[in-house]
């Protein structure tokens, strides 16, 4: 009888430790990421625009920190932050995050930066920049967008057509 009870106990303890181990793994998987230098998402999002730009310009900063900085600059960024964001338009990992911020900033410097980026990026990143120009309804970009209407890259040509329609719906 003692042997049976012992085996049952071992079975229960074994299963319990497996459940606890699984629970621990799940808890670890749910722990939010924290940047070693800049801290949690909430801490980064609390920084002033100039400090957010420092993150963007820090070559050692993680993608996590830079992406959080961009999200925050969408709400608090201004003309002064545009150059740091514009550089990221060419970065395959951060181009969208840069557009996320730039699209929201109500300053002409953004339109100029997006137009300039048209000659620097290609493929999906170019389609993204064109989409942002369309969202901002930048009339001055129309002559530049026309050049992409016949791009061999379907994503680029479709984005150009859509952006031109959005900027001048009556004409396109």
């Amino acid at each position: 009888m003692y042997r049976t009870v012992g085996l049952a106990l071992m079975f229960v303890v074994g299963n319990l430790s497996m459940v606890l181990a699984n629970q621990q793994r799940e808890n670890e998987a749910l722990q939010p990421m924290v940047d070693g230098k800049y801290g949690s998402a909430a801490e980064i999002m609390a920084l002033a625009p100039a400090q957010l730009v420092e993150i963007l310009e820090d070559s050692d900063a993680t993608l996590f920190a830079k992406s959080r900085a961009c999200l925050r600059l969408a709400v608090v960024g201004g003309k002064d932050e545009v150059p740091a964001l514009a550089i990221l338009l060419e970065d395959s990992q951060l181009s969208h995050y840069a557009r996320f911020a730039l699209e929201a900033i109500p300053d002409q410097a953004v339109d100029e930066a997006l137009r300039e980026a048209l000659g620097k990026v290609e493929g999906k990143l170019l389609a993204g920049v064109i989409n942002s120009i369309g969202r901002r309804k930048d009339v001055d970009a129309l002559p530049l967008l026309g050049k992409f209407l016949h791009s061999e890259d379907a994503e680029v040509s479709q984005s150009a057509a859509e952006a031109m329609r959005r900027i001048r719906p009556a004409f396109y």
């Binding site: 969208h96 929201a104 900033i105 109500p106 993204g128 369309g134």
Partner: peptide, 17 residues
């Protein structure tokens, strides 16, 4: 409220639009 107005939309990741 300019900040609130900025939060009315979000740029979509390329190539989505």
């Amino acid at each position: 409220d300019e900040m609130a107005n900025r939060m009315r939309s979000r740029a979509m990741r390329e190539p989505w639009k």
